[in-house]
Amino acid sequence: MQLDFMVVFSYWQVLAKGLALTLAFTVSCAVLGSVCGFLLSLLRLSKSPLIRIPTGLYVELFRGTPLLIQLFWIFFCLPVVFGISVPPYVSVVLALTLYMTAITSETFRGALKSIPSEQHDACTALGVASWNKVFYVIFPQALLRAVPPLLSNVVSLFKESALISSVGIADLMFVGQNISNSTARPVEFLSAVAVIYFLVAFPLTRLVGVIETRMLRRYAY
């Protein structure tokens, strides 16, 4: 067998569509998961064990089990156990969002703990309402501190999204596998898919380093 990587360019439009779908899932689930993760981090810092323990169990469950198992459970097991039919696209969004929520909640929890207690005391002394304190005082500072790990989480989610091909979603990995099977050229197309993932993920990893070394050390600490 002779390798011919030029054949990949004949299918660039199909690969581009798969990449676009992968990015769409990654961005949408990253945004939803980050918002839910911040709210969950506030609940995890609650003094009530009735709130803190269940939220902690949720985080440990989704951080401690493979994303593929979570995806399969939502897509295959929910219809069997609860009689709920979940479409593939909905199951993917739900699985990725729940996973992202769990890992970003720990990121925000660490950022929230790093905020000095004087900030909370000042809000109390000024009579600032709890929700105003959270969204106008605490959240901006926590977000700034959480930017580097949040971007790292997004990169991880982008790479983990390759698993959604297992439920028939025509993402980049699914498209690459189908083309490699139909053309009998797995080396060329799977290598091309790997290069595409790298070209998207590598700039983000470099951006994490730039933000951490230049912005955060100057403005947040």
Results as ranks from 00 to 15, higher is better:
Leu3Met: 14
Arg44Phe: 06
Phe139Met: 14
Pro49His: 12
Gly176Arg: 12
Leu157Met: 14
Leu19Ser: 02
Thr101His: 03
Leu112Met: 08
Asn132Cys: 12
Cys36Pro: 06
Ala184Asn: 14
Val86Ala: 09
Met173Trp: 00
Gln70Asp: 06
Asn132Lys: 12
Gly56Tyr: 01
Ala142Ser: 14
Ser117Met: 12
Lys133Gln: 13
Ser91Arg: 03
Leu43Gln: 15
Val155Glu: 08
Leu71Arg: 04
Gln70Leu: 10
Ser48Trp: 13
Gln70Gly: 10
Met100Lys: 05
Val200Met: 07
Met1Thr: 13
Asn178Phe: 07
Pro148His: 02
Ser34Pro: 03
Ile103Met: 08
Asn132Tyr: 07
Thr104Val: 15
Phe76Arg: 02
Tyr221Trp: 04
Ala129Gln: 14
Arg63Leu: 03
Phe76Ile: 07
Val200Asn: 09
Leu15Gln: 12
Ala24Lys: 15
Ile53Val: 15
Phe139Ile: 01
Ile179His: 05
Phe198Glu: 02
Gln2Thr: 14
Asn132Ile: 10
Thr107Trp: 10
Asp4Lys: 10
Pro149Arg: 02
Phe9Lys: 03
Trp12His: 03
Arg214Ser: 11
Val208Asp: 02
Ala30Leu: 04
Val128His: 04
Gln141Met: 15
Arg206Gly: 04
Ala220Asp: 00
Arg217Trp: 04
Ile74Glu: 04
Leu32Met: 15
Phe202Gln: 02
Val154Phe: 02
Arg217Leu: 12
Val175Thr: 05
Leu78Lys: 07
Tyr58Ser: 00
Leu68Val: 03
Ser156Asn: 11
Met6His: 12
Phe25Arg: 15
Ser46Leu: 06
Leu216Ile: 09
Gln119Leu: 14
Asp171Lys: 14
Phe82Lys: 07
Ile103Ser: 05
Ser180Asp: 00
Ala24Asp: 05
Phe9Thr: 01
Leu143Arg: 11
Val137Cys: 09
Pro116Trp: 08
Asp4Thr: 10
Gly37His: 06
Lys133Gly: 11
Leu78Phe: 10
Ser114Thr: 01
Phe5Asp: 07
Lys113Tyr: 04
Ser130Glu: 07
Phe76Tyr: 12
Gly64Ser: 09
Gly176Thr: 05
Ser105Phe: 07
Val175Tyr: 06
Val8Ile: 13
Arg44Lys: 15
Phe174Asp: 00
Met173Asn: 03
Gly168Met: 01
Tyr11Cys: 10
Leu71Glu: 06
Phe189Gly: 07
Lys133Arg: 13
Ile179Cys: 05
Gln70Cys: 08
Pro79Asn: 06
Gly64Tyr: 09
Val155Pro: 08
Ser161Leu: 00
Val81Trp: 13
Leu3Pro: 08
Lys17Gln: 03
Val147Ile: 05
Phe38Glu: 00
Val195Gly: 00
Phe198Tyr: 09
Glu188Ser: 07
Tyr219Trp: 05
Met6Val: 13
Gln70Pro: 10
Phe202Thr: 02
Ile84Lys: 00
Ser46Tyr: 09
Leu3Gln: 09
Ser10His: 11
Leu71Phe: 09
Leu21Pro: 03
Phe202Trp: 03
Val167Tyr: 03
Ala129Ile: 08
Trp131Asp: 07
Tyr58Lys: 00
Leu61Ile: 02
Gln70His: 09
Ser191Gln: 03
Leu204Glu: 03
Ser130Cys: 11
Arg206Asp: 01
Ser114Val: 05
Val193Trp: 10
Ser114Asn: 05
Gln2Ala: 14
Ser34Phe: 11
Val193Ile: 15
Ser10Ile: 11
Val175Met: 13
Ile74Ser: 01
Val59Ile: 00
Leu19Val: 01
